[in-house]
Design a protein around this nucleic acid. Structure first.
Lengths: 245, 245
DNA sequence: TCGGACCACTTGATCGGTCAAGCGATTGAG
DNA sequence: CTCAATCGCTTGACCGATCAAGTGGTCCGA
């Protein structure tokens, strides 16, 4: 009989990092307080100094602590919102499509506007798959998200189906079509809402809306998807940064 | 005679990282190609393996390369725009004030609007130091930046002077007043330009503008500075992400 | 009292080594 | 011919050590 152990032993540097994070969260080390020194942590966790330092460098990169040469490591803010430093449009490629408050609207082929064609490198007026969803927060409309795919990209995927994916668009393209993507370019602008957008977001015609236009590129630098996110002025996106440089 | 050497010798791991970046940029290693192995780099740069690995881990974190266990390190995208993943308002705290295209406008005490007072925890109508700069790109107006400081924060600093700082506001507060800051909360919105803003950005009255409202907090969670950035619709901010998760 | 030398403690950078584990090609037994 | 063992290369994790350099205190002499 063969027994396969499926225990997953995380690397020690991650274990130390997680351990210290926990102790911060549980209040053992409060804000501004000094962490045990590297050598103390070496003793506590039975690890080498290299390992402890690596863990502390991760905590610093994630914004949990400050490290001051000659003084020690000090607890900074405890990050409340881990979803930080993500572009508005980028999020639509990278996050599971089916998030809280999201609602499927439509999936249809349609002639794309010229900025979209330009970004995807297809001739003007090419019919593309337009996939729409609507995001609200407790009844209040927040945003309309439109994804544009060339039809040959969307073939043999579930992107034309009328159901939100439980994975991210990026992951879906990778698993279903082996399309590897590694780059997003995103533009941000303030615009007047179009009549269609104003209606969806329950705004007056001509209200100012936040407009994110993001392009996802594959490893050969071909544009693969365009995301257009139109955000209601009543739902100002909030970002929190605790890992200041 | 005392001679103080001001040579700045960067740490070797940064030198290796910069060296490899340069070689990628200059096309020695193209997209998808394999980098020299760790041991080869150890020989090339005369460094220890620890140092080389640390450099490669930085390149991975910055999105330059992929590292595959048992295979090697491979070049991903070449980031064009290194100013990535930084909030529009956050940038005004963290970047040297005196950047290309920036122009000092004014520094004066003035009654602050209520959202600013609220963020800084001072009573409505408190006079605050308002410090303004204007950013243009080759003559085209890009943005107006307003920083609000409580007067007791700005005391004994150069923030009331009519010259752009060569360091970041955050660093200035740290060095001149020992104010340690560790958190930024930022809101993004689309708004109509006020008459004043429209004039500064040479826009029609009532044009839609991008509005970033960012608050910098110190380690005791007190609001220390508010940055308001108003971006012209003709200058859409562009972000590039090559380190997708 | 003041200031400087000194010391203990801290983090920063670096080294060279061990062992584990994943990948890919070669090789050899059946 | 097929498939599994093996080998050489790679990255991943980890260790304990050295030296440098920044911080903050003590102590001692002028």
């Amino acid at each position: 009989m063969i027994v396969v152990s499926v225990e997953f032993e995380p690397p020690k540097y991650l274990a130390v990092a997680a351990g210290v994070k926990d102790r911060i969260r549980h209040g053992e080390f409060g804000r501004g307080e000094q962490l045990p020194s590297e050598s103390a942590l070496v003793r506590e966790y039975g690890a080498g100094r290299t390992t402890v330092v690596r863990a502390l460098q991760i905590l610093r990169a994630e914004g949990w602590i400050d490290r001051e040469h000659g003084r020690g490591s000090f607890v900074k803010a405890v990050p409340r919102n881990p979803e930080t430093r993500r572009g508005i449009g980028e999020t639509e490629f990278v996050q599971p499509e089916d998030t809280a408050g999201a609602e499927f609207v439509s999936a249809e082929t349609r002639e794309a506007p010229s900025p979209v064609c330009l970004a995807l490198g297809v001739p003007e007026g090419t019919p593309l798959l337009l996939r729409r969803k609507f995001v609200h927060d407790d009844g209040a409309p927040k945003a309309v998200v439109s994804l544009w795919f060339p039809v040959e990209v969307a073939e043999e995927t579930q992107l034309a189906h009328s159901r939100l994916l439980r994975v991210s668009v990026r992951q879906h393209l990778s698993s279903e079509r082996a399309i590897r993507t590694d780059r997003v370019v995103e533009r941000l602008a303030a615009r007047f809402a179009t009549a269609e957008q104003a209606q969806a977001l329950k705004l007056d015609d001509g209200s100012p809306v936040l407009h994110a236009f993001a392009v996802l590129y594959d490893t050969s630098d071909r544009g693969v998807v365009v995301a257009e996110v139109v955000v209601s002025p009543l739902a100002e996106p909030v970002f929190e940064y605790t890992d200041l440089s």
